[in-house]
Design a protein around this nucleic acid. Structure first.
Lengths: 207, 207
DNA sequence: CATCAACGGAGCGATTCGCTCCGTTAAATA
DNA sequence: TATTTAACGGAGCGAATCGCTCCGTTGATG
């Protein structure tokens, strides 16, 4: 072992597990087998269950972690000087990390109070990013922060059938197209009504 | 019964089944339960198995049907006078119908020779649509026909957690954004290499 | 009324799942 | 080096779910 014995291995395994879980849930949905996660992480099932008492506990931890990563990405975006670069970087980071990948978990797990708080803080920061881009006139005016959340949700989903590397390359190309479509001025206005906060978070109330 | 007794009911059920199967596979992947399909179609499991001997046979029939629909959409697109309207209409039709939704079936079912032929004809027509848009200068030059196929694949995926109506409305808004991003001139060029035909169809060779 | 094609769904065996339990491994300690 | 022990991997258990069969019911037809 590289750094310091069994404790270090445990810490490394913990991160490997969370990364693997995110990829697997993003590709296969909430019903993905626990064995698939352990396998992808390269650890035994026993090591998974020593850290998380149940599959559900792993999923909850995963949600909190991903939302915290999204908050960090939003803060980085707000720290950028250019409003567009900040927003685009935020979106790209979230998609690359797979923040929206936990969407398939919605309705399958109870949402703790801490999860609601983290989500609220995240959407607050995202709202600031979007508002700043709107004021700077670089973001098409008819798009809302929730539209962008749904866009990230869509792009966070991993392909269940292609190699991870190829899938990532494809996703980056398609995301570049979508980002171009987000820039002002819009060429064709968006159809229908913008999504409401209520319908956006409705799936999470079912858990 | 409305039109003509049991035969008419059977024909209607057949269509209901195929529609339901497309939605369910698009939302939950190839592993979706047969009972879920029958339930969504509002028919019994017995009625499903009277028409399709196995789940796999249903999936194959579904693939052929969806590809034929895509071909019709491409022909409609080529019949349009305006190159951009033709291409955009084709993409919108395919996404609305869920053509790319069978992507999660790739590698899970054997691909018959007829399926290959249908796919070849479809990609040929799609290539013509894209080439015409390129020549007219309305489509960003760095995007390929395979990029667009992958884009449709991405947007064909249904949300496993939201009501179908809401999901459809969201999808149309996001697709409008992506279509704007496809128009020439591009604001930021696409990263990486365009996908190759080989890697695009590789998943289908595994069945 | 008698016939029978098409219906819905209970339930079978097989498979897969979440999770437990234990023998093994290797770092820490004496 | 010998002993201890914390973390490891994975076989296998009971439960749940799956694809599919089979049969009693329904309702149009002649």
């Amino acid at each position: 072992m590289s750094t310091r014995g069994r404790q270090a291995e445990a810490a490394r395994n913990d991160r490997l597990l969370l990364d693997a879980a995110r990829e697997v849930f993003a590709a296969q949905g909430a019903g993905a087998a626990v064995a698939a996660i352990a396998g992808r992480a390269g650890v035994g099932i026993g090591s998974l269950y020593r850290r998380y008492a149940t599959k559900q506990e792993l999923q909850q931890q995963l949600c909190v972690l991903a939302m915290e990563q999204a908050i960090e990405a939003a803060e980085r975006g707000l720290a950028a000087d250019d409003a567009w670069a900040g927003l685009a970087g935020y979106i790209r980071d979230c998609v690359a990390f797979g923040t929206g990948a936990l969407a398939p978990l919605a309705g399958q797990i109870p949402v703790s109070e801490r999860m609601w708080q983290t989500a609220r803080r995240g959407s607050q920061l995202a709202g600031r990013l979007v508002a700043r881009a709107h004021q700077a006139g670089v973001l098409r005016p008819d798009v809302t922060a929730l539209d962008i959340s749904l866009l990230m949700e869509l792009f966070s989903r991993r392909s269940p059938i292609r190699a991870a590397g190829q899938d990532q390359a494809h996703r980056q190309r398609l995301l570049a197209i979508a980002l171009d479509g987000l820039r002002a001025p819009a060429r064709q206005s968006l159809p229908g009504q913008p999504p409401s906060q209520q319908e956006y978070e409705a799936p999470w109330h079912a858990g």
